[in-house]
Write a protein that binds this DNA or RNA. Structure first.
Lengths: 339, 339
DNA sequence: TTGTACGCGTTATCAC
DNA sequence: GTGATAACGCGTACAA
């Protein structure tokens, strides 16, 4: 291949030559492993510093057939939900020396798969996915890669490897029962269209069941989409058939609920007098409001931290619990009837 | 090294053997470059598919001394600001075949440096940083790496390589002049403490200058911190000396402004009757409100897209403009006096 | 404590 | 159109 030995690019060879030692001594010195006297190590490290030498992770990965890269796939970062998860996760992984190859899929499973293929080519130490619903091909690829896989945010009895999240069906049920207990019987739901977000669908199913269980009118679903969830919530509220006199509107997220609340106010409706409103996630926004939105707090950051910890354990040869379900906390607010 | 030739891990050799061709033919076939007949190429690709073979990017990076990894450092993802930037950026980079090694620094320059050192070890094709203020060591490291560097969100006449962002000083001035034009003369500012976020400091300086220019009372700064910017805004509002009768409070961000607005309402103040409130960024939240918060819209997504495009041009050997300043749009709202 | 030989998986080069 | 060989930069195993 006779590429010119680019004179400016300093590699481990140059350092070794300059230090008058072998290549291996430099390698050992830089890694801080045994096999080098303290004196020579210090000399080498200082020299490397001066010469501007630093190891090549790709070469190391190749040599040890194992890297310090972790792939992370999130559906979106457009609301604080996954930013919280990611933040908790990165801190933990960072301290363990892992870098992350990250991307968002925009809830598109094909994009998730494409990302995974590209990322897998880097032979990452582990892969982190959002949710437990993926394209069959992805599942196959991942199994073949024989690397730890963490599925976040949602849970299943049969994870690819391990999973840490909440039970979205139960969460929907928890919120729905609260509303049913408050006497609500004619609920509407505003959220992503069916099939868009599996977790949203599970929550909807839980909600619907809660109302069904008390013999209430079937929960009707109003699909909305668009990048601006605040606007989507407002728009969704506008599409509700008010002549049907729904008593409460459940939104997919807090942001949508906020948008819906604004729309309700503009429509001259009193909340919760005329109609109730609920969100989901317990974001900072809703809790700081003078009249907080009734919602369910999801342990987002904890999911990230716990997930990362389990993954690290897995990477260290331990066997963490394959399934970890974290609890949600009901946050009764001022947008639904008081007890 | 005599590691057992792990019989399960299929590499390019196995495919070559199975196809009855040389290693190079497989390499060429997989990459889609010239030098292979269409028939053998198809045969090889199909075979690789069946055998579950896919290239090793680390090895490729080593061989071509150049990778398809781009490092991205953001201060935080906890508000939609950088999520927007990132989203615009990733899409563009993704289409060009680049993966990204990403992390957040939490506005800690030392963390930014540590991240850069770790990331540089992967010999990325380019590095993307937020802001134009970094530790001197980072600047040195980056220059030595001789790779394209994009600085985002802020601009400077002397970028490390290229930069795309807004002029924060001018943005502060723009908002301040608008307020001065509305007759405000006793303004207060609630935001991160000096030194925490260089961009925030520049905006504060611009704001302060606008009021100074009209001979108004000096802008007083109320430092707040904490991860929850909504709560921080509310808390900051509480710390304002109302007996001094400020006529307007400028918040560092929209989220803080929202928190401040809630605090004002709780304090029984009329906004904008008793006091004005402004935010910064023009997030979806404020624009959907029944009474929108006066703010300045920042071209976040555009910064990401434009930045990524310039970087790609740079990677392709072109010479994009070293400095790109994007405009902000004033969004007069209902939380300040009407004209 | 230090050095040597080889292999990790891929690509550039050049010969056939 | 196809193959042999030498890098790419580093770590493991073992010899010195």
């Amino acid at each position: 291949m006779s590429r010119k030995a680019s004179t400016d690019r300093i590699g481990i060879h140059e350092v070794a030559k300059a230090a008058g030692v072998s290549l291996m001594t430099v390698s050992r010195a830089m890694r801080g492993v045994d096999g080098v006297s303290d004196r020579t190590r210090k000399r080498i490290v200082r020299l490397a510093q001066e010469m501007g030498y630093f190891p090549n992770s790709a070469a190391r990965a190749l040599a040890v057939t194992n890297s310090t890269l972790v792939g992370i796939s999130l559906p979106t970062l457009m609301n604080d939900v996954f930013a919280d998860v990611l933040s908790g996760m990165r801190r933990t992984l960072d301290q363990a020396g892992y870098s992350s190859v990250m991307d968002t899929s925009d809830y598109d499973l094909a994009r998730e798969l494409a990302w995974a293929e590209r990322t897998l080519a880097w032979r990452p130490a582990a892969i982190i996915l959002t949710g437990v619903d993926h394209l069959p091909d992805l599942h196959a690829r991942l199994s073949r890669a024989r690397i730890p896989v963490l599925e976040l945010w949602d849970v299943t009895e049969a994870p690819i490897d391990i999973c840490v999240g909440i039970d979205h069906g139960a969460a929907g049920l928890q919120l729905g029962r609260h509303l049913a207990d408050l006497g609500y019987r004619k609920a509407a739901y505003v959220g992503a269209p069916p099939g868009f977000d599996p977790r949203a669908d599970k929550r909807f199913a839980g909600l619907a069941r809660a109302f069904r269980d008390v013999g209430a009118q079937a929960l009707r679903r109003i699909p909305v989409s668009g990048g601006n969830s605040f606007a989507a919530g407002a728009e969704g509220f506008g599409q509700i058939d008010l002549s049907d006199r729904p008593d409460v509107v459940c939104f997919l997220t807090d942001n949508m609920a906020f948008g819906g609340l604004m729309a309700a106010q503009r429509a001259g409706l009193d909340v919760p007098g005329d109609i109730g409103i609920t969100g989901f996630n317990g974001l900072d926004l809703t809790t700081v409001m003078t009249a907080p939105i009734t919602t369910l707090r999801t342990p987002r950051r904890q999911i990230g931290v716990q997930g990362a910890k389990h993954l690290l354990a897995r990477l260290n040869g331990l066997t963490p619990a394959p399934v970890t379900v974290l609890p949600c906390e009901l946050l009764p607010g001022a947008t639904t009837r008081q007890v």
